[in-house]
């Protein structure tokens, strides 16, 4: 039953990604060309508002539905993995104009070709998993 809640949150997120035009390849190109404020405004304001929420989680003002404190998972540390991994991700993001969220939204838009991007992303995650112990941190 609880899964339905996540389906609805995802549905809202899909609508936001579409209505904000984040799903558009052109918006991503424009962002990396510094020719539009749109994407910077979206990510920047999302981060600022989230920062307020994070503080309220930390202080225990906002608790989860069970009344427990909300704890944010710590990200894996490591200079190489974040910079190199991030750069590889950036190549793919700028080429396909879609990060993982928009990829799924575009499947809903009915673009067949995005399924190939999604297949590539799944293969990429698979190869990462296979190599994960050998890659520098």
């Amino acid at each position: 039953m609880k899964n339905i809640i996540f389906l609805i949150i995802g549905l809202l997120f899909g609508i936001i990604l579409t209505k904000s035009e984040v799903v558009s390849w052109y918006r991503i190109y424009e962002m990396f060309k510094f020719q539009s404020f749109q994407m910077y405004g979206i990510i920047g304001s999302a981060v600022l508002v989230s920062m307020v929420f994070m503080q309220l989680f930390k202080k225990g003002v906002i608790k989860n539905y069970l009344g427990e404190n909300i704890i944010t998972k710590e990200k894996n540390k490591g200079f190489i993995r974040t910079i190199v991994g991030g750069t590889i991700f950036g190549f793919g993001w700028a080429l396909s104009g879609a990060c993982p969220g928009p990829m799924f939204a575009l499947v809903g838009h009915g673009f067949t070709s995005i399924l190939i991007v999604l297949l590539g992303a799944t293969i990429g995650a698979f190869i990462y998993g296979v190599l994960s112990k050998k890659l520098p941190n």
Partner: peptide, 12 residues
């Protein structure tokens, strides 16, 4: 492009 997104996101 997909490969780089998937590999890069999980590595990062």
């Amino acid at each position: 492009a997909g490969f780089m997104i998937g590999f890069g996101a999980r590595y990062a």
